[in-house]
């Protein structure tokens, strides 16, 4: 019971004029985007029968090409693992240059972060197209696309992980006259290692998801089977590919979650 003379606080705060205008603007942008994206209730309502028709023609999934599809899935995993591994290894020196206050000055940090931003801004399929032109059709182009995509992702987050480490050990070693490279290797990287492992596992999961569709542009992996299945109206094979991709991606995500829990605990 509140003492007499006290009043209960308001449950909600009334937004100020600027806040109110912001809410209205956000709502307008969403409506404008729906308009641009061709929002249509009629087409949405008419879609379930078409979807049902697709599943009736796709079911049951085809297993007569399963051997070939399984090998394509193995190739997909090889593209993902090799590309992610190369990308993660190359991310470390890149991140050392991008992390503020670790190895180099603000100018280099900024320049490297802009390059990493550019790498992330270009979609993985676009990188695959670029590498198909550069090295020809096949899984090698896919692996290079995954590697560069992983550098964009891990390079940025490794740098953030290093910046977020406790500055105390760095200060203590600076006070003894240690060089920046020695401080980075002795104090910053060991402290950031659990976060690196977590980021790397997310990178591998991302690589596996990406590698399943690189075949759409001829960069190897199981994606080409999906494209051929739809092009030839072989929906049972296409459904098999979709289910295989789902199983592999969910499996890798689950393994990643277990490893993260084991290596660094529940925190991250």
């Amino acid at each position: 019971m509140v003492s007499p003379g006290h009043v209960l606080p308001h449950r909600f705060n009334r937004p100020g004029a600027l806040g109110f205008v912001s809410y209205v603007l956000v709502a307008l942008v969403i409506l404008w985007s729906l308009e641009g994206a061709g929002w249509s209730v009629n087409r949405l309502v008419s879609s379930p029968p078409k979807l049902a028709d697709f599943f009736s023609r796709a079911w049951p999934p085809s297993i007569h090409n399963f051997d070939r599809l399984a090998w394509k899935m193995v190739e997909t995993m090889q593209i993902a693992i090799a590309g992610a591994a190369i990308g993660i290894v190359l991310s470390l020196p890149v991140a050392l240059l991008a992390a503020r206050g670790v190895l180099v000055g603000r100018g280099v940090n900024m320049a490297v972060r802009i390059v990493l931003g550019f790498i992330r801004a270009v979609p993985d399929l676009a990188w695959a197209l670029v590498f198909v032109v550069a090295v020809g059709l096949g899984p090698f182009a896919g692996m290079l696309a995954i590697a560069i995509d992983t550098i964009g992702f891990c390079g940025r987050f490794f740098a953030d992980d290093m910046e977020n480490t406790d500055p105390g050990p760095t200060e203590a070693l600076t006070a003894t006259g240690a060089r920046r490279i020695d401080i980075a290797a002795s104090a910053v990287i060991p402290a950031a290692l659990p976060a690196f492992v977590s980021t790397s596992l997310f990178g591998l999961e991302k690589a596996v998801r990406s590698s399943t569709i690189l075949g759409l542009v001829g960069a190897g992996g199981i994606g080409i089977e999906l494209k051929v299945g739809f092009d030839l109206f072989d929906y049972p094979t296409a459904l098999t590919v979709i289910l295989m991709i789902a199983v592999v991606v969910i499996g890798v995500e689950q393994i990643g979650a277990v490893l993260r829990q084991k290596i660094i605990g529940a925190g991250r």
């Binding site: 006070a175 003894t176 002795s186 402290a191």
Partner: peptide
């Protein structure tokens, strides 16, 4: 010179011996 801080400032995941050897990095 050297600095002993309130928070001790050791590198958490490394061994005691590695942390002391870091004192020679200067």
């Amino acid at each position: 010179t050297g600095l002993v801080g309130q928070k001790h400032n050791l590198v958490p995941r490394l061994s005691v011996l590695s942390n002391v050897i870091h004192g020679l990095l200067g």
